[in-house]
Design a protein around this nucleic acid. Structure first.
Lengths: 369, 369
DNA sequence: GTGAAAGCGCTAACAA
DNA sequence: TTGTTAGCGCTTTCAC
């Protein structure tokens, strides 16, 4: 990092509040009061109008740096995500930006790259920029940055993460319930041997989804069903492909594979295709998030819909109210994901039919893109 | 917009440079010089070390607001895109953020929502926040904000847009060449009747791609080929679906349809599927951008790859050098898109075979997901 | 309802 | 090499 960022020099010298005051023949303090919504009522409306007119003519723009320095308040909020390129975060970024803009705030974004160390330094930097608040999608389980934010006194909302044992408000999906619903869906389809692909349990989402899977299986295990959990090393398509390849090579018996997210599921799908295993006829597959285009894959992916815009909006909304009233009770908002049933899950293959592709009866009704 | 954004109150009063100076037994100005990379060499290294130690112990963080107010320089740059939710911009956002972070800058993002009016107000707001520079993906053709940025003296780089007749630097794809290559591709496949779907010509990309199409067709028209251009009203999947539905209904004769972008192409694909028209056997289809998952559609989409990360990196890099040296010559960087051939384009159907699906010989070699 | 004056925290002349 | 002083542009007591 170089340390000497430079600014631009405006061509024309900037118009300051002093210029406005002079132009209107009043004192700066009067101009300041007139130009601030909170204090303009203390000035006669005649003078206010005059000052506003002069300000308009001169093209006066308040210097927010000076204003913030004086008031110790800024009109900026920070948004931190673990991976700016993941399509999952796009609607969250967009909706947070929209919601805070309603209250006159602008948004800083930063990428923590799934690193708690980077996250910490971003939080510190944003704190030193005096952000009014933070929306963070990057907290790991027991992430020290949670406490850091709390100690720094920065209003903070965790999104898509649930720092359960802290005093931090959060907005997340009800992961456990969602996965549970997904397990029930495949059980309904007659599957008796189900594998769940989890990523490393660093994030609360990973834990919650696994908990949902385990909860659902506890009931079904009595009925003689078989359940497996396999741990992936990452969250992406490549890893999904690797892990499904691995499973197939080592004699996968499951007829249904549920993945932590769509990216892993898509990777699994790719591996199935290249191994010549039919989905859903031989193996049913499902993901989580309902990313764009999941409805257009072949087969279209059954998944849990994550309402990104709702998450972003709710978290930004919560942050705004937190900023207005610091001593608000901690809130923990859980949105319910809904099951999106598509072509990648189907009836379990008949017991007795081998996993030899040639023995499989193709019985899917093709679901169009 | 409410007008009174609030900041957070730190629990502990902040440590200022005065505290550090007192702690080290030196004057503030000495502390300031010691703590600034640009001036620390003027202080004896012994004192520098002492001051750094005290700063460290006290947990001093420079107040960037005060610093910026004094120096008229900020460590922030602004990034403006027309649609934060479009996957096309994700890698651009990510790579811009990464590149400027290397030089110690943080990134503001904002969404112009394809509105020149909103764009203008965002530019003004960012200017009043003293951004050091701007990367803008939202400029329309002859957008007045181009001149505004230039007049305000803000170093600005247009990305994915090419404000040709202005003094603004830009980084974009060579759209004309790309589309031309795409036309040649389908001509090679034997297509003699080709339709290009363009959006409204508000953006330079739209103009350039159309120009590329026209240039390519001029040559081929002599050979008796037929070319059509149809104008869509938007850039998205829904519009693609609508327009293809419309074309089919009004007796489309083309055997190849090239769309302005992948989203429109995907929409076309959806419409083809629901109309029972085989792609590519009856109609070949291609897009532009190579969005995530385009390789996994059925059929996988032939498209032009837009290197989002490269675009973002190059534009941020250019901006950094522009900030360091304002009087740099205007640069216009063009990246060459490459053709990604997949399953959605195939040989033209035999002349004489009707457009009746039942008469079509299925001859695609299936390309796996 | 308006003016006077102080100061947010920092850096950059100018001195010494 | 270090200290002195002024001031970036704004808001906010405190007077009147």
């Amino acid at each position: 990092m170089s340390d000497t960022p430079q600014g631009h020099q405006s061509k024309r010298p900037r118009v300051t509040i002093v210029d406005v005051a002079n132009g209107a023949g009043v004192h700066v303090s009067t101009a300041s009061r007139a130009l601030n919504p909170g204090t303009s009522h203390r000035i006669s409306s005649k003078v206010v109008r005059k000052i506003e007119k002069v300000a308009e003519q001169l093209g006066y723009k308040r210097n927010s740096l000076a204003s913030s320095l004086r008031t110790q308040k800024t009109g900026t909020i920070g948004l931190i995500v673990p991976n700016l390129s993941d399509p999952l975060f796009s609607p969250i970024i967009a909706s947070v930006e929209e919601r805070v803009a309603e209250d006159g705030y602008v948004t800083f974004v930063a990428n923590s790259d799934y690193s708690p160390v980077k996250l910490r330094s971003i939080v510190e930097r944003m704190s030193s920029q005096f952000v009014a608040g933070l929306v963070v999608a990057s907290f790991e389980l027991n992430d020290p940055s949670v406490e850091l934010c709390l100690e720094l006194g920065i209003p903070t909302v965790a999104v898509l993460r649930d720092p359960r044992h802290s005093r931090m408000s959060s907005v997340a999906m009800d992961d456990a319930a969602g996965v549970q619903a997904m397990v029930e869906h495949v059980l309904d389809l007659g599957h008796k041997d189900i594998t769940y692909v989890t990523p490393p349990l660093a994030a609360s989402t990973a834990q919650n989804r696994l908990a949902g899977f385990n909860a659902a299986t506890r009931l079904a295990k009595a009925a003689g069903c078989r359940f497996d959990v396999i741990e992936a090393r990452a969250y992406d398509v490549v890893e999904g492909e690797r892990i499904m390849g691995h499973m197939l090579a080592s004699g996968l018996t499951s007829t249904a594979v549920l993945a932590f997210n769509d990216l892993l599921a898509v990777g699994c799908l790719v591996a199935l295709k290249s191994a010549g295993v039919a989905c859903p006829e031989q193996i049913s597959l499902a993901g989580v998030n309902d990313l764009p285009f999941m409805n257009l894959l072949s087969p279209p992916l059954t998944t849990l819909h994550t309402a990104g815009r709702d998450l972003g909006f709710e978290s930004a909304d919560l942050l705004m109210s937190l900023i207005k009233n610091h001593s608000q009770p901690v809130k923990r908002i859980l949105l319910t994901p809904h099951l999106v049933l598509r072509g990648s899950t189907g009836p379990a293959r008949k017991p007795g039919s081998s996993s030899d592709p040639s023995a499989i009866v193709i019985q899917s009704d093709p679901i169009s893109v």
